[in-house]
Each structure stands twice: as structure tokens, then as C-alpha cells.
């Protein structure tokens, strides 16, 4: 089921800045969509458009069948949002903050308490539940924000840099929770980040954005096939036949570009038959980072 749909969505600020330019894409339920791009690429503006905080200057979008620009209050009922600018009250405890947001979402008091309790435990904040928020560290606030966004069991979750400021252990914790939500509860997750390696680890599909434009969208395999087909074979060997055109990288390993994995046996056979010794061989597929840089480089060339 398609839960989030963007059709030629554009936003031009009154200052004349075109933050989002004609983005079209759609998300399915249970999907973790990585919306990737450098700072200022238009990720946050897109989230604000999808959550109804901004009205689009062109195109339209819908979340669970409702247009957030026309009926923001209704879209918010099934939507959770974590952004850097959505903070909570310093004068309340972590627990009381969650209870407050539970009642704002119309959850009955007893159920709200239970839900807050579960979420605080899941996110490792149980011990700090009765501390005022002013005593929380950045990482704890970040995790409490996630708990707050989940308090009403949303069907769509917007996360803007959810693991920035988290230590590795909490980040792992949060990632585990995000994956579980997508897999078990079929929640659609729209995750904005500029950390490409992190995105590759957790997301199932990606959209790469720069200067408000969507450069490419798809799964890692699709993006690899589209932008950087093939792979790089790295071989650690000696007595390599001279007629095999191999480059040596900085570690002294041999590198060769291949079209597909089918090419590997032939190359290895040739080295072995020529009397070479192979210590290791690995095919390296382009990472999200490689794809991103190749796409932005292409874009620059086109512009020149």
C-alpha cells in the first residue's frame, strides 16, 4: 500500500529560494526510505511539506490519503515526527512529557502511562524517567523525542537525523527499534540523513537529493545498476601474468573493473594457471557514497 505520495512537489520560499523542486516519489508501508543529501539540500523542507507545516508552492503530496496542506490536524493523527527543532518541555520530567503528548493525542490516561512506560524501557530511558528534561543529555533528548513520536502508534514516521548525537550503543538500540517498527508493525519510515553509510545500513530504499532536486531513487541494487554498473575486483596475489592489465592500489592489491561476478572465475583461473598465488579476492560493489558522488559529479558535468 502506498502511504506517502509526492507529486511534482515544489517549495519556493518568499525570499525566492527554491528549496524543493518538483520531487515525485512514493513510499510503501513497511518501508524504510532514506532521503539523503547534504545539509541545505531540501530534506527538512520536504518533511515540513509532508507534515503540513509548510504549504507547497507547486505540486501536491498526501500522507495516508490525506493532503497535509489541507488537513494537517487529521494527518497528524497517524504521523510521528522527530526533527531537531521539535523539542519538549525542560520543566517537566521525561515521563510527564510523554504523558502530556499522550493526552494531546487523545490517549486515555491509564493507557498513556502504560505506553510511556514501555517506550521509556525500550529506549533505555527508564532510569531517567523521573528526571526533569533539563538534566537530559543530547542523546537522551533525542531518544525521548523518538518515544514521543511513537506514543500514539503512528503509521508513518518522519525522522530527521534520528541518530545524530547518539553514542554507538544507543544508535544501535534506535536502529533496532526502527527496523522492528517497519518489519513487525508495517510502519512507513521516512528517514532524512546526510550520513550515507548509516543510511545504507538501515534503509530499504533511497532517494538522493541535491539543491532541492531528486537525483535518483530506488533500492541499492537499482541505483548500482543505474549509475555504477559492475564492480571492482580486488585481488591480493603474486606472480601475476604481465599481460593481465591490473592496477595496483595503495595497499599493494590488484584492482580490476568487472562487469559482473561472472567475470571473476576467468580472471582467477588465468592468474593461477600462469603460476601466481592468490591470497584473497573480493568483488567490491559501489556503496551508496560512491553512487552519490558519481551522481553529483554527473550533475555538475551536465551543468557545465
Amino acid at each position: 500500500m502506498q502511504t506517502v505520495i509526492l507529486e511534482n512537489l515544489s517549495k519556493t520560499y518568499p525570499s525566492g529560494k527554491q528549496a524543493v523542486r518538483q520531487i515525485s516519489l512514493s513510499l510503501n508501508s513497511g518501508e524504510i526510505y532514506g532521503f539523503l543529501g547534504p545539509n541545505g539540500a531540501g530534506k527538512t523542507t520536504t518533511v515540513k511539506l509532508l507534515t503540513g507545516m509548510l504549504t507547497p508552492s507547486g505540486g501536491c503530496c498526501s500522507v495516508l490519503g490525506t493532503d497535509p496542506a489541507l488537513n494537517p490536524a487529521k494527518t497528524h493523527e497517524n504521523m510521528g515526527v522527530v526533527t531537531e527543532h521539535a523539542q519538549m518541555y525542560d520543566n517537566l520530567t521525561g515521563f510527564d512529557n510523554l504523558i502530556f503528548y499522550a493526552s494531546v493525542f487523545g490517549i486515555a490516561s491509564e493507557e498513556g502511562k502504560k505506553r510511556a512506560d514501555t517506550l521509556l524501557r525500550q529506549l533505555g530511558l527508564w532510569e531517567a524517567a523521573d528526571q526533569k528534561l533539563s538534566a537530559y543529555s543530547t542523546g537522551m533528548r533525542q531518544r525521548l523525542s523518538l518515544a514521543r513520536a511513537l506514543i500514539h502508534r503512528p503509521k508513518v514516521l518522519f525522522l530527521d537525523e534520528p541518530t545524530s548525537g547518539l553514542d554507538p550503543e544507543s544508535a544501535q538500540n534506535v536502529n533496532h527499534l526502527i527496523r522492528e517498527l517497519a518489519e513487525n508493525e508495517n510502519v512507513t519510515i521516512f528517514l532524512c540523513t546526510h550520513q550515507l553509510r548509516y543510511a545504507q545500513e538501515i534503509c530499504t530504499r533511497f532517494g538522493l537529493i541535491e539543491n532541492g532536486r531528486l537525483l535518483a531513487s530506488g533500492t541499492l541494487q537499482e541505483l548500482q545498476a543505474k549509475t555504477l554498473p559492475g564492480a571492482l575486483l580486488k585481488i591480493r596475489a603474486d606472480h601475476v601474468p604481465a599481460d593481465l592489465t591490473l592496477n595496483r592500489d595503495t595497499d599493494g592489491q590488484y584492482e580490476i573493473k568487472i562487469r559482473s561476478e561472472e567475470d571473476i572465475p576467468a580472471i582467477i583461473r588465468r592468474i593461477v594457471e600462469a603460476g601466481g598465488n592468490i591470497y584473497s579476492a573480493a568483488a567490491k560493489r559501489p556503496t551508496l557514497e560512491d553512487i552519490y558522488f558519481s551522481l553529483t559529479a554527473q550533475k555538475k558535468e551536465e551543468e557545465v
Binding site: P72, H85, M88, V104, F105, R148
Partner: peptide, 9 residues
Amino acid sequence: ETLLYSPLS
């Protein structure tokens, strides 16, 4: 902003 993300108009 957090309050605006609530189902209140």
C-alpha cells in the same frame, strides 16, 4: 513545533 505536530489544528 512539537505541539504543531499534534492532531490539534
